[in-house]
Simulated scan of single mutants.
Amino acid sequence: MPTVLVLNGPNLNLLGLREPELYGSDTLADIEARCHVVAAHHGIEVDFRQTNHEGELIEAVHAARTGADAVVINAAGYTHTSVALRDALATLDIPVVEVHLTNIHRREPYRHRSFVAEVADALICGAGAHGYPLALTHVSHLLAKGAAS
């Protein structure tokens, strides 16, 4: 069964508490539970993680080189600042899908630039918590397409 690493960056552990008018009332645990349901539907396994530390995200990406079949990532604030995370993601030979709860292109100008998008196969933003199931569905499609090639 293919494994998809779902990585979540800084402050996402505060979902449901932090600016619910912007990020919604779903907690990260709610999103994780939904991801497991969608993953099971598509015959994939989810390894769901969150960290507030850039180096831990990079280490998880390095481990994905041999331990995952795809990556879904919400790098949160590191999306707009971390060239190191972008470079780590660029080393992957597996699908990468970037996801954001809000539409980063309708936010503050500094959020419009995504270093992650430069190396991602797809970007899903502005769909709220539903963006994660959309990302997993797309990853499932990419994995099936790759198996057919």
Rank of each mutant, 00 (worst) to 15 (best):
T81C: 04
S114Y: 08
A63Q: 06
H80I: 01
H41I: 01
H62L: 02
E54W: 07
D26S: 15
R107P: 08
V99Q: 03
A147D: 09
D93S: 14
S140E: 02
A70W: 01
E19H: 13
H100C: 10
V71K: 12
T137M: 02
L12P: 04
D93N: 14
G43H: 07
A84L: 06
A68F: 14
P133F: 05
N103T: 07
T27P: 01
T81K: 01
V72K: 08
N13Q: 07
G146P: 02
L136Q: 00
V6L: 12
V72L: 14
R113F: 14
T91M: 06
H42E: 13
V4Y: 02
R106C: 05
A39E: 06
H141E: 11
V119P: 05
P10M: 12
V99I: 03
P20E: 15
D30P: 04
V116G: 11
A148E: 13
N13H: 06
L28K: 03
A64C: 09
H100I: 03
L28M: 09
M1F: 07
T51C: 11
E98N: 00
S140T: 09
L5V: 10
V38Y: 00
D47T: 08
K145S: 13
E98V: 05
L14Q: 10
V96I: 15
H53T: 09
V61C: 00
Y110T: 00
D69Q: 15
L142M: 15
I73W: 03
V139R: 04
A64V: 09
R86F: 09
Q50A: 10
L5C: 06
L92M: 06
I31T: 02
V116S: 12
V83W: 09
H80R: 02
N8D: 10
A64Q: 00
I124S: 02
I44W: 05
A84V: 05
S25N: 06
T51F: 02
V37G: 01
L101Y: 00
L123E: 14
E19I: 10
T81E: 00
